[in-house]
Amino acid sequence: MNLTLHVWRQAGPDAPGKMVIYEATGVSPEMSFLEMLDVVNEGLTERGEVPIAFDHDCREGICGSCSLMINGVAHGPMRGTATCQLHMRSFKDGDTIYIEPWRARAFRVIKDLAVDRSPLDRIIQAGGFITAPTGSAQDANNILVAKESVDDAMDAAACIGCGACVAACPNASASLFTAAKITHLGLLPQGQSERYRRALKMVQQMELEEFGSCTLHGECQEACPKEISIDTITRMNRDFLRASLLGTRP
């Protein structure tokens, strides 16, 4: 099939960007979206033009590198699917596809479709961990964890840190990302002693990074390739509120 692509091109962080039109011809429905872009890039290279930069790595939906806004939808039309696992059978011959980077104040564009998501790493640095220096652990089976707790923790821990939640949010909030980690660790017995401090510090860092506030639009859970529930945000708010009320020290 043949497609018309409108792709955001931006030479660098401070350069102006614009949409550029490319024709993608002979696209097979079995191709993944990124393979379609590979073919476009091969063509550009052969013509001596600079190929389109985009982040990608594992191409199996787990590393969280890929990050494309496709027709205004983070990761495109297929629910619960990262861009790399989206296949061209989701489109039809003659379609026009708009491809843009994640748009958020906190995510600076590096080039074309690649953005800087290091603010998400700094949110984890603020408290997204359980303090357990290597060597200090007791026997694994001494800690009992109810199956339901670990299943719910795993649902939240499935977050791949892609930032689609931020891109989808009208406020560019990183609440779903932050809440997923707070939920994962807060549901486990190992995570209790740092639970409230963790919530406080991670939420504070989220604000420092200039992410917007959550107003419960719910766009994030629609866009999340791992279908993480917005319920995690309720839990984050509860833990944060309690930490604030109790005067938990950061």
Partner: peptide, 15 residues
């Protein structure tokens, strides 16, 4: 030791 360490860190192994 690895399993002990990972559980202490909060790795949600199946239960």
């Amino acid at each position: 030791n690895i399993i002990d360490q990972c559980v202490a860190q909060g790795v949600p192994f199946a239960r």
